[in-house]
Design a binder for these strands. Structure first.
Lengths: 208, 208
DNA sequence: ACGGCTCTAGAACGAGCGTTCTATTCGCTA
DNA sequence: TAGCGAATAGAACGCTCGTTCTAGAGCCGT
């Protein structure tokens, strides 16, 4: 039913990714750069090297369903990077700073085109397309849970970890947008340093 | 030349705001909620109780020029609120927390529809419309300068003030977006508290 | 009274939108 | 090998988009 690939293999035996996946990736990339309203379904089809027929075959819900799938894709992508950064560092504060550096690198490498895929897709339609708002909320919530979990592992009190996770994700999000608008990684560099200090502060004095 | 109102007075003797101003305000409001691409010029004309002819008379540059004017309008609006919050508090940390509360209130009162007008207007077109990107950058830069100035007045070192201002604005921006997506003011409340602590930390130990 | 502005008014245009639709191709199973 | 459903292909539809254009209304200095 919703399974993939008759013509192309799903587990990438020798061909590239299946059509459905290509469509999701193209949607994510395009909406990341142009937002939901600025991205056309025909443009998505072209970007995915698919046809309109295929797009509506895999996503009968149309553009809205495409956006939800794209947000979930972007969510997974950043969750992996975030988990990688947090796992690689002894101190969670260092992991968070590393994540900020990683975001700055991606931003610079794309010539400041690729901001947060979730933010740019969801902003502007939070009021009119509930499914998209909900998917974006779930993305943020998941990212926060990854940070909070890592902080708790490191001995932070549950409440401190939860609240710090809110600010870590919000600040990274805001700094990424500032960096994109300024075409300068300074906002992300500074945010990483400040977040590390803030986290360190709670490690030393858990009571808020 | 670019002056206003022949039919309507510019200094609001007895009539409401002039046509040009109504158009700017409507553009700002609409793009705040629907983004640049999601907002139509005809919708702007209707929202401003003006006609298409008037819109293109005052803004011959079309939609792009409208967006730039809307961003500048939103910039001025928040700059005033920010300055008010900072001036009202003895300690800048309290002023910043008050500003977060003010944003949360506005957000809640609009039923989570009105986020940052600059962010939602600029996101998605930063790569394709340089004028809009520049206007948004100028907005963020000005807001940061207000925060930095207040911190310096309070005895912060110049570099500390400058860097803290980056994080204050980025975090408020990110938290506002998180609040909008979650339809919950928790991100803003927590961000305000954390920013106050962070600022307090630098007041006590200026060296970074 | 009148010519010369600013501003208002909305019809008209080509292009592109999201979506629907029918027809066709392909690979598997019976 | 015949048939079935998944997937591809793109023409066509009604609609709205941003912009342009012509026409008229209101006010001014002379």
């Amino acid at each position: 039913m919703t399974t993939n690939a008759r013509h192309e293999s799903d587990d990438e035996g020798d061909a590239g990714p299946g059509t459905r996946e290509r469509i999701v990736v193209a949607t994510s990339r395009l909406m990341q750069r142009q937002g939901y309203s600025g991205t056309g379904v025909k443009q998505i089809a072209a970007g995915a090297a698919a046809t309109l027929g295929s797009v509506y075959h895999f996503f009968p819900g149309g553009k809205k369903e495409l956006a939800v799938a794209a947000i979930r894709h972007g969510e997974r992508e950043f969750a992996e990077e975030l988990a990688r950064c947090l796992a690689a560092a002894e101190d969670p504060a260092d992991g968070i700073a590393a994540c900020a550096r990683s975001l700055a690198e991606g931003m610079r490498e794309s010539d400041w085109a690729d901001g947060c895929p979730v933010a740019s897709t969801a902003l502007g339609v939070t009021g009119s397309v509930p499914d998209i708002r909900r998917a974006a909320d779930e993305a943020f919530t998941h990212w926060r849970s990854l940070v909070a979990e890592r902080l708790r592992e490191h001995g932070f009190a549950g409440d401190d970890a939860r609240e710090l996770a809110y600010t870590v994700i919000s600040t990274l999000e805001g700094a990424e947008m500032a960096a994109q608008v300024a075409r300068d990684e300074a906002p992300l560099r500074i945010a990483g340093a400040h977040l590390a200090r803030l986290v360190g502060l709670y490690a030393a004095a858990p009571r808020s």
